[in-house]
């Protein structure tokens, strides 16, 4: 299994780059640097005549690999889903990436969705996001414009809703939701739901119009530290309409229940 997973890792160049960086290097804007820049006497309207000492606008950087797991069942595959962001409180770039390796048992990457989004807070808990999504894997490539919101909903649900428009006149919608239920201080049960919707069939990517699929999971993780949590769980996928039909034509099934083992990691 491990040998099969390894070839998929190059699909995560950004996250891997992240992992290689020492934590200190992930934070930019050393406040000491301001003093060499010869700020004038009017800094902050006179609040700080010798230069700003408070780095409340510092650039931070984070990466989280929320799903980093092997899914076992009728044929096994590796699945990743992660996010990374860089920016200050108001302007951030966010990378979201997910995909599967060997899910059709032929050593190929599929369901590879990668998004690069500019993100800006619009309310206490929500950010507006705009950018591009590229479907890059062993299937037919697609490029989409993306617009969405991501944040913390009532009841501590982490949610993201993103709409997409492709240059071929296709529209799509994706929703994500996850919740952390603390069983103990370190044992956490995380239900997670993803849905994908498309306005038109796309045989090249094996998706049909309407609700295409739901991908849900229930993961039980143990936070050895906040940044390192092995987990086990189950994942259930169900395919609908045209997507289900295309899968059946290829010998697949409309639903898929799997046991999974993974390692959640922050960088």
């Amino acid at each position: 299994m491990t040998r099969r997973i390894l070839p998929a890792l190059p699909a995560l160049p950004a996250l891997a780059l992240f992992a290689a960086m020492p934590a200190q290097a992930q934070i930019f804007g050393d406040s000491g640097a301001f003093f060499g820049s010869g700020l004038g006497a009017d800094t902050l309207q006179g609040a700080s005549p010798y230069g700003n000492l408070i780095a409340d606008d510092r650039v931070y950087m984070h990466g989280i690999l929320n799903q980093n797991e092997g899914r076992f069942g009728d044929g096994s595959y590796y699945r990743w889903s992660g996010q990374a962001w860089i920016g200050n409180d108001y302007n951030r770039l966010r990378l979201r990436t997910e995909g599967r390796y060997n899910s059709t048992n032929n050593g190929k990457v599929d369901d590879g969705q990668h998004e690069l989004l500019y993100e800006r807070p619009i309310s206490t808990y929500f950010d507006l996001q705009a950018g591009v999504r590229a479907d890059i894997d062993d299937g037919t490539g697609r490029t989409w414009a993306a617009l969405g919101v991501q944040g913390l909903a009532i009841g501590f649900w982490n949610v993201a809703v993103t709409g997409y428009a492709s240059n071929r006149g296709h529209f799509a919608l994706r929703t994500d939701a996850a919740y952390d239920l603390y069983l103990t201080q370190r044992l956490v049960l995380q239900p997670q739901f993803e849905t994908n919707w498309y306005t038109k069939d796309d045989a090249g990517r094996g998706v049909g119009a309407g609700l295409s699929d739901i991908d849900t999971g229930l993961r039980l993780r143990y936070d050895i530290s906040r940044k390192f949590s092995p987990y086990i769980g189950v994942a259930y996928q169900h395919f609908f309409g045209g997507t289900a039909r295309m899968r059946r034509e290829e010998g697949g099934q409309a639903d898929d229940l799997r046991f999974l083992v993974g390692l959640r990691a922050w960088f």
Binding site: A23, I27, Y60, Q185, R226
Partner: peptide, 25 residues
């Protein structure tokens, strides 16, 4: 360690160091 890493962690997860939270128990 580095306090900058602490601030970075708090920006990502403001209760990063809370191991006294409410649980199922």
């Amino acid at each position: 360690g580095s306090p900058l890493v602490v601030q970075n962690n708090l920006k990502q997860m403001s209760d990063y160091y809370n191991f006294n939270r409410r649980t199922l128990g």
